[in-house]
Simulated scan of single mutants.
Amino acid sequence: MLGRSGAWEPSARWLVRLETVRNIEDPITSRGAFSVHLGSGAWSCRVRPLQGSIEKTGLATITLPIAVPTEVGDRFVLFDAGRRMVVAGGLVLDPSPARRPDTSMASAPINTADDRATSLLNARGVDTVERLAAHSGGGSDTSAIAAGKWLFSRSWAESQERRAIDITRSYQETNPLRPGIPKASLASRLRIDQATLESLVDWSDQLSETGAAIMTADFAGTLSDDQELTWQTARRKLKADGFAPGKISDLGVGRELVHALVRRGELEELAEGVFYLPDTLQALIDRVRSFTEPFTVSEFRDALGVTRRHAVPMLEWLDREGITKRRGDDRVVIQSTP
């Protein structure tokens, strides 16, 4: 079989429609020594009628020992060695169906390549551009939703988005301080892989990705009365400590509460375990911009009255923010343009 590179997507299991020959006496069942003949090729195969048996016409899956290139609309004949005869003619409806085949392909339009691509995507819900083209004979679905290498049927994407939002909101209500539901957990609940989930989230304007978690776009997390009291007490202490705050864990602020406060923009982590209030960081910028000469870490430390534990993370943060720039052992202030 000749074709351009990438034009074929071999598969070893097909959804087919079988039509028995006129002189067959017994219906086709899963029991038989079958072989499928397609083009110039012939392969032994297993046949599983979706309704248990086929007397005249019906749907079945055919499983081959090797993957064979085929596409929607390909015709073949089915031979039964036990009967020593051709028992049916067949039409490929889906070259690579789901474990539970979508039987809508039996009545879907497949006259043109684009018809076949649209029908396949509606049955599968999600597919890659290359695979859909290969299985439809070069067709495309112009109504599909594109997300990276993936194509979604609109009905599938909207249905999965609704389910993802419901699952995510439920998780957020139970775990208000966490950044969102873990991707692996949400993908499992939706019965899709993580790559497909990430593409779905990229398309959706109601879901967003944060690290290894998914959250709804309007999620900010809420603090209980006790957590709010803990935070306000810790905030006053952090404000009083200025440029040399103590360990956040010593203030009774738990890890999940810290993560929630960082997401809300009420804390910023400069290094592991070193947290500052946004107001303190702004005061740091104002203070540093008053420096007129290059300075070392030691000079910076002494000017602010802090230890090296605080000085180094602050300087590295200032470098990242474009406030200072390192030159050898010194740092210089980058003057902001008016």
Rank of each mutant, 00 (worst) to 15 (best):
E268R: 08
V306E: 01
V312K: 07
N111M: 11
P109L: 04
I62T: 07
A260H: 10
V288H: 03
V36A: 05
A283M: 03
T61M: 01
V258F: 07
N122P: 04
T233S: 13
I192R: 06
V288M: 06
S11L: 01
T168S: 02
P101A: 09
A234K: 07
A134Y: 02
R154D: 12
K56Q: 06
M85N: 11
L59P: 01
V126R: 00
S298E: 12
G90N: 01
T20G: 02
V16M: 02
L257W: 03
S208L: 14
E272T: 13
R178N: 07
R116A: 10
I54V: 04
I66M: 13
N111I: 07
V92K: 08
P49D: 05
W156I: 02
Q160C: 02
P10K: 03
L38A: 08
R308A: 04
P97F: 12
R178C: 10
P49M: 06
A147T: 10
E173M: 11
R308I: 04
R191Q: 14
G32L: 12
S185N: 12
V16Q: 02
L238P: 04
T142V: 13
G39E: 09
L177Q: 06
T57E: 13
D250M: 14
L132F: 04
Q51I: 10
E293Q: 15
P313L: 04
S30N: 10
G242H: 08
R255C: 06
E198S: 11
A240S: 14
L50S: 02
G39R: 11
R13K: 03
T174K: 15
G254Y: 11
L38I: 09
R326Q: 14
Q227G: 06
D205A: 10
